[in-house]
Design a protein around this nucleic acid. Structure first.
Lengths: 152, 152
DNA sequence: TGAAAGTTGATAGTTAAAGTCAAGTTTATA
DNA sequence: TATAAACTTGACTTTAACTATCAACTTTCA
């Protein structure tokens, strides 16, 4: 019942991209440095994200990655399901024919409820929400540092 | 973002136990046959459930396992967290000191929300709920079979 | 009363999948 | 042509899912 590093790192990388791209491509190396995630691993994640058309790539010097849609139009669910597959606690919530003996699967209702609860949360949060929160956090941080200096 | 077989099988086994125990211990062999789960694997799961005091064991001939509390008092969360560890999408929701650079972890709020959503579902469903549903399902099944025979 | 059978308890081993890292290849720009 | 970057592939590491074996305990029955 964990979100693996794929989802976690991928989400952080996407928030980073939303924060820093301003019409220009961001190379993986930059994200790697800021987020402290290995370049190789990020490359894999971005390959998947690119195939799902959540980001687009620019090859060659001065290349990198950019978002393929507005941050408002990319949900957390888009990113996580792309990287980790469909969010369902068990297969029989996705594949209808999996539960071939439904009488033995009274627990099915529970899993459906759980899937709905999870999806409700991650579908209603977008990259824009997270980016704005990140920017806000950073301002707060700066203010705190400033105050500390003034006290000294 | 999956519940592993530990949680899934364990939950099925516990529902089976709630359905069939009537003051007497149920051997693993029976549960294994009904639920089609290997005896060896079930033994492992029950060892964990026993240590968590969710079930108690009776050794020797005519022995087996019984619930250690009323089905109304055992939640799905009890069973799943016992078998799979705390339900949290990421560690930093459990361990406060994990998020040592909180400014890099704007996503923390999302994970907390997700954990709350999940726990809300599984804490509010008990073994009694699932057992009752299983019994109901079985009646419905019997009725359907009977109707089919009558039609013939 | 004692041996056989039924059952849990504990541990180690095997296989397959997922996660992670590393190195090399291709493409575009200057 | 050199460099910066995306892309691709392969290998290693960890974890999950079982499987197998044997020890310990308890009842049953001859």
């Amino acid at each position: 019942m964990r979100v693996s590093t794929k989802g976690r790192y991928g989400l952080r990388a996407m928030v980073d991209l939303a924060e820093h791209e301003e019409g220009k491509a961001i190379p993986i190396r930059e994200i790697s440095e800021r987020q402290n995630i290995s370049e190789q691993y990020l490359e894999q994640l971005f390959a998947t994200l690119r195939k799902a058309k959540l980001v687009k790539s620019v090859r060659g010097a001065h290349g990198g990655y950019m978002l393929n849609h507005e941050p408002e139009d990319i949900s957390v669910a888009d990113i996580i399901t792309t990287l980790e597959g469909p969010i369902a606690p068990v297969d029989c919530v996705i594949e209808d024919d999996f539960c071939n003996y439904i009488d033995k699967c009274v627990i099915h209702g529970l899993w459906s409820e759980l899937a709905d609860a999870i999806n409700g949360v991650i579908e209603n949060m977008t990259l824009a929400d997270l980016r704005d929160k990140a920017i806000e956090e950073k301002k707060r941080e700066e203010k705190t540092v400033k105050e500390k200096i003034e006290v000294k």
